[in-house]
């Protein structure tokens, strides 16, 4: 299941890059992220709760940075499991930053996700919608965060 989109934040590429590579900022912007810790500069562990109607899942996830080209591109792999390995998730993600017209930054993302196990029984149609809405919520949060940091100096 693939999702892709882009959004613009009102901050230059360098500052946006710093925000995106800061696990605390990412953790705070990610809907449902309950904790995030940096194991190394390229490996993070997080606990992320996801809810879809009556179904609630809490993923223990690892995010590994497999390739990066500061300040324009980062490739990550997310691996997670929930419910005592009742389901597994893997997502290959590419994030690219480019200057936008107004001095801001266009952030584009692509994610290719697979879910196996109990959650996969629910069907991917709605799961994809859910993933898209979480991604756009993340974008909104990040935008607010970067803009806030910008206006606060």
């Amino acid at each position: 299941m693939k999702i892709a989109d882009s959004f613009v934040v009102a901050a230059p590429v360098e500052r946006t890059w710093r925000a995106i590579r800061d696990p605390q900022v990412v953790g705070a912007c990610l809907p449902g992220c309950e904790e995030i810790e940096a194991v190394s500069p390229t490996l993070y562990r997080a606990r992320i709760g996801v809810k879809l109607g009556p179904i609630a899942a809490e993923f223990a996830a690892e995010v590994e940075v497999v390739e990066e080209e500061p300040p324009v591109r980062v490739v990550t792999v997310t691996r997670g499991e929930e419910g005592g390995r009742a389901s597994n998730l893997r997502s290959d993600n590419i994030l690219t930053l480019a200057p936008a017209d107004d001095g801001g930054t266009r952030v584009s993302y692509e994610a290719d996700m697979t879910v196996t196990g109990r959650l996969a029984k629910f069907g991917f149609g709605v799961m994809k919608k859910k993933a898209q809405s979480l991604a756009s919520e993340f974008a909104g949060n990040l935008e607010a965060r970067v803009n806030e940091a910008a206006s606060g100096g």
């Binding site: 009556p54 179904i55 009742a86 109990r118 959650l119």
Partner: peptide, 19 residues
């Protein structure tokens, strides 16, 4: 707590280990 009405959905989801 969850309401059990006819069971047509809730029990199916319980059987599938979703809830």
């Amino acid at each position: 707590a969850a309401c059990l009405a006819g069971g047509a959905t809730l029990v199916a989801m319980m059987n599938a280990d979703l809830v």
